[in-house]
């Protein structure tokens, strides 16, 4: 199996890693000494009961929160303390747990804006906003991908909840990230939309790494290569879905409560 050591290592270099990562809010440790290792090209789920620190961890990874202590490495590079926009440019894109859109902009405008972000076009106050039209084709492709093409001209504020979640996903995809962080991508979705999202994440995960938080075990089971279980800000268990599901600590701490 390991005739060549190089080959054995090549398939899963570490793309995202935290070392002793902690975040304290006025004495409350939301994330406590977390060592997380995300292998490149995998789909990695973070699960855990409410208040386990999943979203805080996401905010730390994307620069929206500054860690109290510890380090974050992206492709071996220390990104601790970087600003969200810098991390986004490096290739780590996120979606938000609470739907976070520009309510008065059309879907197409959302995606054009996301696609224009790395180009610096946004600074050109002397040019017509029609210039953003050059991203239209790619924007429509992305909308097509998440099943929103027929609503391209609509304002985001007028979308149903599940559709907003889909737009969130399209926005993160528009940045063509190396690592895609999805905070509860299927929260509040109907069954049909959940399955569509699973299929979509499967499709877009080829060639990139996906880290996601979800409470839906069906979603976790069908997507995740690796599952990390968090409890009270700490890593409780890690492994494949089957391993984690069989773990006695996890059953008592989390799955036991749910089932």
């Amino acid at each position: 199996m390991s005739s060549d050591t190089n080959d054995a290592r090549q398939p899963s270099p570490v793309v995202l890693q935290t070392r002793g990562l902690s975040k304290e809010f006025r004495g409350f440790r939301a994330v406590s000494d977390v060592d997380l290792t995300v292998a490149a090209g995998t789909v990695h789920a973070l699960v855990g009961p409410n208040g386990a620190g999943k979203t805080t961890l996401f905010n730390l990874l994307t620069g929206f929160l500054e860690p109290s202590s510890g380090q974050i490495l992206f492709q071996g590079r220390d990104i601790t303390g970087m600003q969200p926009e810098q991390i986004a440019h490096l290739g780590v894109a996120r979606s938000f747990q609470i739907t976070s859109l520009f309510d008065q902009m059309s879907l197409l405008e959302h995606l054009e804006l996301a696609l224009a972000s790395p180009t610096g076009l946004g600074y050109r106050f002397w040019q017509s906003s029609k210039r953003l039209g050059r991203f239209r084709e790619r924007a429509m492709e992305l909308l097509e991908q998440v099943g929103l093409a027929d609503r391209a001209g609509q304002d985001a504020g007028s979308l149903a909840y599940g559709q907003k979640r889909a737009l969130e996903l399209a926005l993160a995809l528009a940045l063509d990230p190396t690592v895609l962080l999805l905070d509860e991508p299927t929260a509040g979705m109907g069954l049909e939309d959940v399955d569509r999202t699973i299929a979509l994440v499967k499709k877009v995960s080829s060639g990139r790494t996906v880290v996601f938080v979800d409470h839906n075990m069906h979603v976790v089971g069908s997507l995740a290569d690796t599952v990390t279980v968090l409890q009270s800000g700490q890593v409780l268990a890690e492994g494949t879905y089957e391993q984690v599901r069989a773990d006695q600590r996890v059953i008592t701490a989390y799955l036991g409560q749910a089932g």
């Binding site: 008065q104 902009m105 790395p118 050109r124 002397w126 040019q127 906003s129 953003l132 940045l175």
Partner: peptide, 29 residues
């Protein structure tokens, strides 16, 4: 008029409506 109807103006409106999202998209707010 030019500024508000430019890509720059579009980014401004995005920042006005949702600064956190604008940053997540890579815009230096």
């Amino acid at each position: 008029w030019r500024a508000v109807n430019s890509p720059f103006g579009q980014v401004l409106v995005a920042i006005r409506d949702n600064p956190a999202r604008a940053r997540a998209l890579g815009y230096d707010v």
